[in-house]
């Protein structure tokens, strides 16, 4: 056997292993979720009851689905103005300059901070702050979690859209300048429309990250198994209910948690797929 063939076999084997692992995970998620779906049917998704009392057990995922979607969307909304202006700063206004290099590194550094550290910061800084300014009595809840989540996804949104924005060809910008456009006009009429689908895709992919974020959210959202009552109310997300309860769960409850995991997996996969799809449409 020659080296060419050996390389090919090794690579093929490695690729197959990855597919088997992914398939195995999906399989065990489906398998584990079956009892919950058998017991509650499709109502599992739409019920907001979470009652572990023996004999009257009843579980529904709605509060967690709502909590996950609300915190993630809110985080995306909070993150957008900051990430968007930072990516314009890096990818257009100060492209290639020293200051852009320093800022870019700092933004990437944000991505490297562990989730638990964000959680701690939120718990010991934001929470007392919110209590002091009287937003709500305990400082925890949807808004606190979303705010920290927004800070956590800023680096992803920024560096993805920065890359897209700096990919807009110089020749297009020069063409616009040669017609007498100002810098702002070049950005609004040439750079933004050309980069738009890529920028949208980078926010969709950031949303995908926000959906599955667990630790920091668990520490800040209040962990109340209810559909959040307003912006400052408490709630729970799909990821954090699993993190909080998997230790003492068995039987139907465990199956319900796995079913929530499966739903989260599907939602995240769908969002990522959408993001990639939009990304492909660039140019």
């Amino acid at each position: 056997m020659n080296a060419e063939k050996v390389t090919k076999y090794i690579l093929t084997f490695a690729a197959i292993i990855i597919v088997v692992i992914a398939g195995g995970m999906a399989f065990s998620l489906f398998g584990g979720a079956v009892p919950a779906f058998k017991e509650f049917g499709i109502k599992f998704i739409f019920s907001s009851e979470w009652n572990p009392t023996e004999g009257r057990e009843s579980y529904g995922a709605l509060p967690f689905i709502a909590g996950t979607l609300i915190t993630s969307m809110l985080a995306l909304i909070i993150c957008f103005p900051l990430a968007f202006s930072t990516s314009l700063f890096l990818g257009e206004y100060f492209k290639g300059k020293k200051i852009a290099g320093i800022l870019g590194t700092l933004v990437d550094l944000l991505a490297g901070i562990p989730s638990i550290v964000y959680g701690l910061w939120g718990f010991y800084v934001l929470k007392p702050l919110f209590v002091n300014i009287g937003i709500n009595e305990h400082g925890l809840g949807i808004f606190t979690a979303s705010l920290v989540l927004a800070i956590m996804i800023i680096p992803y949104a920024t560096s993805l859209s920065n890359e897209i924005i700096s990919m807009v060809p110089d020749e297009l910008k020069e063409a616009a300048y040669s017609l007498g456009a100002t810098r702002r006009e070049v950005i609004t009429t040439i750079v933004m429309p050309t980069a738009s689908s890529g920028v949208i895709a980078s926010y969709v992919l950031s949303l995908g990250r926000a959906l599955g974020e667990t630790m920091a959210v668990t520490m800040l959202i209040g962990n109340a198994n209810i559909i959040p009552k307003g912006l400052f109310g408490m709630g729970n997300t799909m990821a954090s209910v699993i993190a909080n309860q998997f230790g003492e769960a068995d039987g139907l409850k465990l199956s319900s948690l796995i079913a929530i995991g499966l739903l989260l997996f599907l939602i995240t996969a769908l969002v990522n797929f959408l993001g990639k799809l939009i990304m492909k449409r660039i140019y």
Binding site: A175, S178, P193
Partner: peptide, 29 residues
């Protein structure tokens, strides 16, 4: 630059604009 037009090495019509909008891009911009 409004008095001096420029044509570049490679054709670079604005990809997000129609032919019509490309022609009047100078006014639009």
């Amino acid at each position: 630059r409004r008095k001096i037009g420029m044509v570049f090495q490679r054709p670079n019509p604005f990809p997000t604009m129609s032919i019509y909008d490309n022609v009047i891009a100078g006014y639009k911009l």
